[in-house]
Amino acid sequence: MSKHHISTTINGEPVEFLCDTAQTLLDVLRDELGLTGSKEGCGSGDCGACSVLVEGRLVCACLVLAAEVDRCAVETIEGVAQGNALHPLQQVFLNEAALQCGICTPGIIVAAKALLEKNPDPDEEEIRFWLAGNLCRCTGYDKIVRAVQQAALVMRSA
């Protein structure tokens, strides 16, 4: 059975790959394209550690078939920083100890970035419900929510 030939853009760069039907976007990102920033915590869409954007929409890469992203724009954690310049979310997360083990951090930063692009000044409740799909077991979420609010402030005043 021949593989699917997919041409897509990932973090703004054109990328082509071959994949089987059963391979998810997460499998291809990690195993074929070496983009291991998206993490597999559950493989069933329940933890959010594999959050990416497909056509600007925040989704779990483990619940998207790689074949579905043909001619779609994909954005992953690897595309959040611009070269060496960290995104305000990344810098504030580091400064405010908003991560510990960090396995959930890529998914949370991709999700939070999507939120701030939709609403530049979200309140605590909106942040918490937006991030409810991103499980974190280390922090208890407090510093993550505060970091998103602080990054939003930085971005609004930038």
Binding site: G45, G48, S51, V54, R57, L58, V59, C60, L63, V64, A111, F129, W130, L131, A132, G133, N134
Partner: peptide, 9 residues
């Protein structure tokens, strides 16, 4: 139905 990520699909 599910999280923001699930809502996207």
């Amino acid at each position: 139905i599910g999280s923001t990520q699930i809502q996207g699909r």
